[in-house]
Design a protein around this nucleic acid. Sequence first.
DNA 1: CGTTGATATGTTATATTATATCACATACGA
DNA 2: TCGTATGTGATATAATATAACATATCAACG
Lengths: 161, 161
Amino acid sequence: MSDQIKTFRQHNHDNCVESAMHAAQDICDAQHLKLTPARQRVLEILLESHTALGAYDILERLSNEGGKAQPPVVYRALDFLVGNGLAHKIEQLNAFVACVHSHKDHNPAFMICKKCKRVAETEIPNVPTALNQHAMDSGFVIEQTIIEARGICPSCNETAK
Amino acid sequence: MSDQIKTFRQHNHDNCVESAMHAAQDICDAQHLKLTPARQRVLEILLESHTALGAYDILERLSNEGGKAQPPVVYRALDFLVGNGLAHKIEQLNAFVACVHSHKDHNPAFMICKKCKRVAETEIPNVPTALNQHAMDSGFVIEQTIIEARGICPSCNETAK
DNA sequence: CGTTGATATGTTATATTATATCACATACGA
DNA sequence: TCGTATGTGATATAATATAACATATCAACG
């Protein structure tokens, strides 16, 4: 597999996942909350995906790891995470994202291949100037910015041509 | 209503909707396809929203305009639009977007209030440099970029404080 | 220790909502 | 008058979420 394709398929997020997990652990310790294995694993899954996931997406990933989890397992973990500010629910999507409050300066950008649906992730150093300007003009307070680019990934570009 | 809030609620897209509708009409004329009122209206709704909409989102907006439309009305129009390249289905979301091929240089940006869920739209002149760079490095061909900023809109910011 | 009570988990079944299609009657235009 | 588009009611399919109850874990207390 070429470097390009490998890059497209999986961006290494170990660092930021790990630091976020530590931050979460600290928050729980401070508030006498238990970040149990199930909750930990769901949070990790959210952090790894680095985008909004449906409850059943999470369930599927959990189930790939051995025992087949049931829906309530995921919903309970999500209740805990959302209830304690470690994750958010995006109502419009019925999906959940890990809270990245601990590193607000992180602006993920996704490149989504419209052929194979794979998603590559990268990040950009700061909110685009024009958007920032518009937000300030209108009084909107930006907490997180997500950029989605739709297009064709390198491998699909080759084969489909 | 203050200018700020008005700005937040509705950004005027008449120009780009209109030009896209003309382009669609031209395409249909050239291929002897009929852009009937129903199809026209669904395409307009997609263009106005300028983001992916579920079939029932479209249905709701159609129904607000007089006679209450039924699901097949929307699905038929969408079949036509997708079948003829005037719109795309985002399988991952079960949602539909108008094809904006005719104005590739348009990069919408959305500011979504996480309290009231209202969405303001603006646009930025070009794809953020860092993302563009990364795409080029990996061989990804960007067709459209959508930026979503989550945060708090001016009116929620006042009341919730 | 051992018991108890609070919290977390395992598991089956099912409720709720969103998404999509069927089937048939009617209209309209080439 | 045939092909295509629309109106409309009913229903199928899939995604999302919860109810209910049994079991497990673990810390606090006597």
